[in-house]
Design a protein around this nucleic acid. Structure first.
Lengths: 232, 232
DNA sequence: GATTGACAAAGAATGTACGATCTGAAAGTT
DNA sequence: AACTTTCAGATCGTACATTCTTTGTCAATC
């Protein structure tokens, strides 16, 4: 009947290759919101969700509170929770913030990068190029490792956490999307340029390169979202 | 007995002049964490908090989940919640992010600012100067209005929300702190310079001005935190 | 005799069920 | 037609059961 029910029971079991194998209520709800399986501004009724999930209402309530803290649902007293729309604007907003943050993180990395770091980056990049976008999941993991190598040791944990969260969201949205050929070559170019700048201790250049990288990535995701919306 | 109990019952009622009059459990917990009334990494036991708050455990659990979503507590399965330390590093991290975000928000505002906007800014600035840091609460409100005028119409709601949250945190931390005389004059100077740049359509200048403003504010808060830690 | 191991009991978090309270909308009255 | 009343549905709060962690004790071994 309801839109929620039809959607949630359509996902009886998932691969859950992602990180922790926890198909927790929180994860499921977040995924459904991010992937647009629940419509924007739709009301999330606790009892209904609980019966779909096969649990009582309490875990659902707590999951919703957590999602509220992260900004995925909007709760008003005595009136329950509504889905925050995950649309192109949302992606654009996140990417714009990343365009500001990631260059700063990268700039700092240029100052502390060792020879071993650069070799590791090159190794990862070689793996990425060899894989050549053959397996989406593997590529995503390699790309994550690539950027994590640069950011993980940064002193500003808060900024890195923000990056991780944003990246999770973007990754969840773009899962299943095909990467266009032009974007593929751009990604490789941008990575190569980034490595070159880091090698040359060119902080400004690295900063600009990562900025373009993030911006291009955002643009590509939005394009794919539009395509998907048009085609069904 | 416990450190939590002695602390929470020490705040039986508060002024709650801040925004909504909701002295919700969430607000109380968040405030206690931000103000360091609960020690860093201290364990937050649900039953204990519930009895201190005078409610049952469920509302406390939901408040903790929300705080987890916002990053104030760290929860591990079957092992409960711990307080995330709110220390100088935390403030520095937040301010560094703001140094990146606020200039971008300001830059955009320069492009859309009308004559009426500038006049309103000047009016607020005149009020601030007249008040001259006499009433901390009033000054804080005026300052909030001043910056809100610039950011509120920005299209990137996500970035603005981030700013609001960060500002809330910083405001909560620095509540009760005295503003040093040198910082007072700097604040006024920076505001004046900001207005001048906006008037002259100088986006770069305004961007730099707000950057210095945020950085100076952060430095001042950290200094005060150190002072307070030393003195008691 | 000291250290380590298992085992049991207390404590705390998670999950379930139910009652109280509030909202929203439909029905009925003036 | 507009206002009031009523009632179903959903949220919020309380109490309790279950499961997991942790701590403390006791015995066995080195």
């Amino acid at each position: 009947m309801s839109t929620i029910s039809s959607i949630l029971q359509a996902v009886p079991e998932r691969d859950d290759l992602a990180e922790d194998g926890g198909s927790s209520i929180y994860e499921r709800l977040r995924d459904d919101i991010i992937h647009g399986r629940v419509k924007a501004n739709e009301r999330l009724k606790v009892a209904e969700l609980a019966s779909r999930m096969g649990t009582s209402t309490n875990p659902v309530r707590e999951a919703l509170q957590q999602l509220r803290g992260e900004g995925f649902v909007i709760m008003t007293p005595n009136r329950g929770a509504r889905v925050r729309p995950i649309d192109e604007e949302f992606v654009r907003d996140i990417c714009e913030i990343e365009v500001l943050i990631e260059p700063a993180l990268t700039r700092w990395f240029v100052g502390i990068a060792t020879k071993a770091d650069i070799e590791e980056l090159e190794r990862l990049q070689a793996e990425i190029e060899e894989l050549n976008f053959g397996d989406e999941m593997k590529h995503s993991n390699l790309d994550l490792q690539f950027h994590r190598l640069m950011y993980d040791r940064h002193y500003n944990r808060h900024a890195v956490d923000l990056w991780v969260r944003h990246r999770h969201i973007l990754w969840a949205i773009s899962r299943g999307f095909q990467t266009s050929l032009s974007r593929q070559s751009n990604v490789l170019d941008e990575h190569r340029e980034l490595i070159a700048c880091i090698k040359a201790q060119d902080a400004d250049g690295a900063s600009r390169a990562i900025g373009r990288h993030v911006e291009g990535s955002g643009r590509h995701i939005i394009e794919r979202m539009r395509l998907e919306k048009r085609n069904g």
